[in-house]
Structure formats: C-alpha cells, structure tokens
Design a protein around this nucleic acid. Structure first.
Lengths: 80, 80, 80, 80
DNA sequence: TCAGATAAAATCGCGC
DNA sequence: GCGCGATTTTATCTGA
C-alpha cells in the first residue's frame, strides 16, 4: 500500500507538469495575438485574417474527414 | 419598484418556457436515434452515415464561411 | 439482392430525415438562447437561470430514480 | 504603393506564422491531456485534478489582484 | 457495463 | 459591455 506522502508527492508532480504546460500554452496564445497585432500594424485586417485561418482550418478538417470516410467505405467493402 | 412576487412569477415563466423547449429538443434527439436504428435495421452502417452527415454539415458551414469572407473582402474594397 | 440505385435512394432518404431533424433541433436550441436573451433583457442573470434549470433537471432525474427504486421494492415485495 | 504580390506574400507569411503557433498550441493541449491520462493510469481522478488546477489558478489570479491593490495603495500614499 | 469517442453546454477571452 | 468565437468541461452514445 502506498503511503499518503507518496501519493501526495505524485499528485503534486502531475499538477506541476500540467501547470507548466498551461503556462506555455498561454504564452503561445499571447504570441498569436502579437502576430495579429503586428499584421494589423502593417495594414492587414485582423478580422479577414481570422476568417482565412478559420477557412483553412476547415479545409484541413474536411480533408481528414474525407480520408476517414474512405477508410470506412473500404472497410465496409472488406478491402482493408 | 417591482415586487418580488412579480419577479418570481416572471422568472418562473422563463424557466418553464426553457424547460418545455429542452424537452422538445430531447424528443427530437430521440427521433434522430430512431432513424439511425431504423437505417441500421435495413443494413446501413450507422458509423458511415454519421460521417456522411458530418461531412455534409462541414460543407454547408464552409460555404457559409466563404460567403462571409467574400463580404469581408467587398467591404474592405469599399464595394458594399 | 438490392440494386445499388435502391440502396442509394434509401440511404439518401435516411440522411435527409436526419438532417431535417437536426435542423429542427438547432432551431429549438436557438429558441432557448432567445429566451435566455429575453430574460436577460428584463434583468435576470442568465448564469443563475442556467443553474436553476440544471438543478431542476437533476432533481427530476433524482425523483425518477427514486420512483424506480420504489418500484423495485414493491416488485420485490410482490405488491406491484 | 505596394504591389499585390508583396502584399500577398506578407499576408501569407503572417498566416503561416499564426498557423504554426496554433499547431504548437494544439500540441501542448495534447500534452496536457496526456498528463491527465497518465495520472489517471496511476489511480488519480482527472476530474478532481482539473478542479485542483482550476482552484490554484483562481488563487493565483486573486493573489495578483491583491498585490495590484496593494501597489495602488502604496502609490496613493507616495510610498512606491 | 465500461472506456473511448462524439456531441453539447458552459465558460472564458477577445475584439469591436 | 456585449456579442461572438474559441476552449474547456460535462453529458451522451456506441462498440467491445
């Protein structure tokens, strides 16, 4: 049986790893904001840029889904 | 100043409208499940069907986004 | 054996039924949002209202569970 | 006046920087999920862990707010 | 019945 | 400060 001390120390380690990663994530989100701000500063419209990014993201997602359904079809036809 | 009684009665009315709508929504979700079950009963693969529905939903959403970015472009060009 | 044409047409019919139902579901979800917005406009706090609805939903679920347990007891006692 | 080619190439560069950063962000989000999964595998409850992380985040935010208020006081008193 | 995937709801954070 | 989009958390569903 594990002692509580060990459990606590493991838990603490997990929590700290998560918090470190979340901080990195926040830093990257800030970087993204900075890029939008910089682009805006050189005359680009952030709203348009966000829409472009969003459409390209959808394109990628759609392509993935199409690959997935192809796999499903092949599986259904016993060709996998 | 409104009395608490009036407030309470208004709040109650809002809550009841919401709960009624949520029940309708749940009923429709059940209907959808029934359709999948019926389709499965006639030999169709529900997983494939869900993927088809999902892709068609993405198509529609993508079309909408493309219309929106076109509007953004036109606005940016002062052509609206 | 069914022809592919028949299969396709059946599949199409199922998909369309599902999409129609999903659209209805979305419409109701929009109605719910509208009610929250309307309530907000008359001074109620949407967050609080959502909490109330959620609690009442849990209560209802709890009551149903308790009734089911009661039924089990009655059945076990041969009193159903 | 900038040529369209230059504009396009600048825009493309901004978009690519954003997409790269978003991918890094997603990768980190995945890492976080992995840590939760690993913790779960050693017997910890992810839901509880999320609660802990959330509370600690609030605490941190609260502490920062209190420090800012203290700074305001000190500044108002000419003690900064 | 449970885990793993999917979808929905709620919350958060941003730009306007 | 409000709406809107993204993210996160919760709930539901399906297949093993």
């Amino acid at each position: 049986m594990k002692s509580n001390a060990v459990n606590t120390s493991h838990l603490r380690a997990f929590i700290e790893r998560i918090e470190k990663l979340e901080e990195e994530k926040r830093a990257i989100a800030d970087d993204i904001k900075d890029v939008y701000a910089e682009a805006k500063g050189t005359g680009f419209d952030a709203k348009v840029m966000r829409k472009i990014v969003s459409i390209r993201r959808q394109d990628k997602s759609k392509r993935q889904e199409e690959e997935e359904i192809l796999d499903l079809y092949l599986t259904a036809l016993g060709m996998e």
